[in-house]
Design a protein around this nucleic acid. Structure first.
Length: 594
RNA sequence: GCGCCCGUAGCUCAGCUGGAUAGAGCAACGGAUUUCUAAUCCGUAGGUCGCAGGUUCGAAUCCUGCCGGGCGUACCA
């Protein structure tokens, strides 16, 4: 790829920003960003530069007159019509049809990237997400971290980063001590060799938890057990292995169903760091950062206060000698920076852990383990609520198992497929129900601002109207249907598209769709920068809407010879973009028919 | 007490480093199918952006205070 092509592959908004910013510089002599944004209203054109008013303020001059001076030195004639000044000093820009057409052809010539440039090469990004607990089924509480993290990993990868997903499994914490203590009690310390199903383990877990909370002696046994495990001297290490294996057999298939790309190779659970933990504590002691307080070993990072206003501890070793999640997180951080060479580490966990991560980040910086060249990000998200606006639970108050949730979504989708398309073969109906059901669950999550809590509702997400997965899958299926019908109408789509020399964008719906197709890169870059999948779903929804308007206004196969290749190309690029966004970035299946 | 998040149309939510008349979807109402899938499209109606100040040419957006909700705040993760 040569330099020229690279330049033009840049998002249009970036090109305009650069051009206008430098025009402001040369016309006014101030370094003031152009602040180019898409216009709120089509009557103002496609993009507007808002920065002139700010520049005029700096210079204490009339913004309108300044805008005129800027336009005089501004050359965007290859992209836009003559810029217009409006209001107090907006510069309004309208994309030239010729540019639109050229750009569309260019995207077509590089269909894998869909007009999106790789912005960075090989910078290593660790994305820490999912992190289910061993010995428990995944429940709805794991859904958000798992799929949001997966989407972030996919977006960064597509943009050219060297992404290392990490699944920080909860396989070494206090809950394990409880399980061991219960095994000890039940078997009188005899190894059993029985394989335990996950259901057994869950029942065990429940029993252990309630004993732990009520029986002080049991709690002590549990703490001893986890300390033993942490010191590598536990009788139960074999049992521990079996429990981990059984749990993997459960959650790896769930990842498969969810279309989440985490594999066993991405797994570095808490136990992976077990040999580092004592050293972590020692080192922080040596650095005089860790001190004993109330029997526990703590670091007191700057600026954190507890209820009484005293320094807030980051506890790295409990008074009973066991390590805890702060210790493993420190070890993981060191490993990621020193061994993996991470330049950016993104932690995807719910918002309740915000304080923990703030303190973690503060500690590693104070210790000098991580310098400013490494970016640490905690990406938070809100809670999934039930329709009663309380944390999502079953009617009997149990946590909802992820498997059950997915099953129900697929079943409900299957009912609709049967209504709409009874004539399809069963196997295909199942496949569609699967794609629609799982897709609806994921999409509903992605399309919400991750900061807010959101109300989970099968009825809403499977309504198949509005901003939902099925709406977009449907748009895709319609395009595929056109392609299938083309043969019967003697239309050779491939030939028509590959022979296109110039486009004829005439109808408003064609132009709107074309313009939106060019904005894919802007959407992905914004979504990745902020780790906000809802920016991407917003883009895709708008694309599907614009396609649907186009579809009902413009005939494709029966279009005249002048229009048809252009329309076929619009269909093709729309389908590819929807497929790419849904499939490659959100991990949601598309279907050929629905 | 302190800290973080949230408060936008009847409901569920967008609103990108402050920008022009605050946008979608659902629900409501009215239209569109001899035409490539109507799981669709077109239109109507609906808002003191929690409240009060402040900064600004301009505030849903930034600052301060208050109200309401959620979460966190020493040995769970």
């Amino acid at each position: 790829m040569d330099g020229k092509l690279k330049l033009i592959m840049k998002p249009i908004i970036d090109i305009l920003n650069e051009r206008i910013s430098s025009a402001i510089m040369s016309a006014a002599g101030v370094d003031c960003p152009a602040v180019v944004k898409p216009t709120g209203d089509a009557k103002f054109g496609d993009y507007q530069a808002n920065g002139v008013m700010a520049a005029a303020k700096q210079l204490k001059c009339n913004p309108h007159q300044l805008a005129e001076k800027i336009i005089d030195v501004l050359d965007v004639s290859d992209i836009c019509e003559e810029p217009e000044i409006a209001g107090p000093g907006f510069i309004n820009l309208r994309i030239k049809p010729a540019f639109l057409e050229a750009k569309l052809l260019e995207i077509n010539s590089d269909a894998n990237q869909l007009g999106v440039d790789e912005i960075s090469k090989a910078e290593k990004v660790v994305v820490d997400f999912s992190g289910p607990n061993i010995a428990k089924q995944m429940h709805v509480g794991h859904l958000r971290s798992t799929i949001i993290g997966d989407c972030i990993a996919r977006m960064y990868k597509f943009l050219g980063y060297d992404v290392v997903p990490q699944n920080h499994i909860g396989d070494w914490g206090t809950q394990f001590g409880m399980l061991c203590a219960l095994l000890e009690k039940k078997t009188e310390k005899k190894k059993t060799n029985e394989t335990k199903t996950l259901e057994d383990l869950e029942a065990f877990y429940k029993e252990a938890k309630s004993l732990y909370d009520t029986d002080e002696e049991f709690a002590k046994t549990a703490r001893d057990a986890i300390r033993g495990l942490h010191n590598g001297e536990s009788f139960w290490i074999g049992e521990w292995n079996a429990i981990v294996r059984e749990s993997q057999n459960h959650y790896l298939p769930i990842y498969g169903r969810l279309g989440v790309r985490l594999t066993q190779e991405d797994e570095r659970g808490e136990s992976f760091y077990k040999d580092m933990l004592a050293g972590i504590v020692e080192q922080l002691k040596k650095q005089k950062l860790a001190t004993e307080s109330e029997g526990a070993i703590c670091v007191f990072p700057e600026g954190f206060k507890n209820k009484e206003g005293a320094a807030l501890p980051f506890i790295i070793q409990k008074s009973d000698g066991a390590f805890l999640y702060a210790t493993t997180d420190l070890a993981a951080m060191k490993f990621r920076v020193d061994e993996l060479g991470a330049k950016k580490i993104i932690y995807v966990t719910d918002a309740r852990q915000a304080l923990h991560f703030q303190m973690l980040f503060a500690v590693v910086k104070e210790a000098g383990w991580v310098d400013d060249s490494v970016e640490l990000k905690h990406i938070t998200f809100g809670t999934m609520l039930g329709e009663d606006n309380k944390p999502f639970k079953t009617r009997s108050g149990e946590t909802v198992k992820l498997k059950d949730l997915l099953d129900e979504a697929v079943e409900r989708a299957a009912v609709v497929v049967n209504e709409k398309n009874p004539e399809l073969p069963d196997e295909q109906k199942m496949q569609i129900a699967n794609a629609v059901g799982i897709g609806a669950v994921k999409y509903a999550d992605y399309s919400n601002n991750r900061d807010s809590d959101y109300v989970f509702s099968f009825d809403k997400m499977l309504a198949m109207e509005g901003n939902t997965a099925p709406y977009m899958q449907y748009a895709y299926a319609r395009i595929k249907s056109i392609e299938r019908k083309a043969g019967g109408k003697d239309v050779n789509i491939e030939a028509e598209i590959s022979n296109i020399k110039e486009l004829h964008l005439v109808e408003q719906q064609e132009i709107d769709l074309a313009k939106h197709l060019l904005k894919y890169s802007e959407a992905i870059i914004a979504a990745a920068a902020e780790c906000r999948p809802n920016f991407l779903t917003g883009y895709l929804y708008e694309l599907a809407q614009k396609f649907s308007s186009f579809y009902s206004a413009c005939q494709v196969l029966k279009a005249d010879e002048k229009s048809r290749p252009t329309r076929l190309l619009l269909c093709d690029l729309t389908a590819r973009t929807i497929k790419h966004g849904l499939n490659e970035l959100l991990g949601i299946e598309v279907v050929e028919q629905m």
